[in-house]
Structure formats: C-alpha cells, structure tokens
C-alpha cells in the first residue's frame, strides 16, 4: 500500500492552519492540523480537485461613481480554469446600475459558475 503525506497550508481563512493530509493509494485517509471543518474539507479537496474563487474587475459603463466594478466567481472553480475565467471576462463590460450579487457573466468558461458583482456601481 502506497502511503503519501502532503503538507499543506489551509487557505480558507487568514489563520492559515498547517495541514497534514495522508493518502493511501490516492485516497485521503486523514487530515490533521486543521482547527475547523473547513480545513478538513480543504485538505481533501486540495489533493484531489483543487479549486479557487477568482476575483477580478471588469469595466462598467453608465456608473456615476465607478470606472471598474469588482467581481468574483460565485463559488470556487477548478484551479486549472483560473486563466480561462480571466480570459472569458476580458471582453465583458458591465452595465450600471449594478447591485452586489448581480450576475455579470453566467456560466463562466463552462464551469457552471456565475461571475457576480461584489460592489455597487
């Protein structure tokens, strides 16, 4: 049986707990070092299917106050799709008025995840 130990830093919150993930034959058998359930979930996901929330900005037209509006993927997306998300947003211009949570681009880069505004504009 092949045992693999991966040392990670949990990125869920700024505490940055140092995690030890133990895999046997590619299956996670334990996560230690976490101080909350998010850490356990992160450890399992990071070694099998790493995901990230992407935050960026897009230009906004028709806003009195803002040139740019900040946006994020509503949930995390596969880590290897980060640049696909950024490229998909390259041509997007948002239209004011925008509320926090408004969809700026649906199903970005085929991830099934929407990009939403994080600021009013």
């Amino acid at each position: 049986m092949a045992t693999e130990i991966r040392e990670l830093i949990c990125i869920n919150c700024p505490m940055g707990c140092p995690l030890t993930v133990t895999l046997e034959d590619g299956e996670v058998v334990s996560v230690t070092g976490n101080t909350c359930p998010r850490g356990d979930a992160y450890g399992r996901k990071e070694v099998t299917n790493p995901r990230r929330i992407v935050t960026t900005t897009v230009p906004v037209v028709g806003s009195k106050t803002e040139h740019m509006v900040s946006v994020k993927t509503k949930t995390d997306i596969p880590k290897d799709k980060i640049f696909d998300v950024v490229f998909a947003l390259k041509e997007v211009k948002a239209q004011a008025p925008l509320e926090i949570g408004d969809v700026v681009l649906a199903n970005v880069a085929g991830t099934g995840v929407d990009v939403i505004a994080t600021k009013r504009a």
Partner: peptide, 19 residues
Amino acid sequence: CIHNGFGLHTFKEELTGPE
C-alpha cells in the same frame, strides 16, 4: 481590496473587501 477572504470570523462567510 477586491480579493476574497474577509469576514470569516464576523459573518461566517468569505467575502471580498467591497462586500
């Protein structure tokens, strides 16, 4: 600060700075 990671302690969810 448009990145996420704010508010986990306060709101129990991960927000961006503007949110």
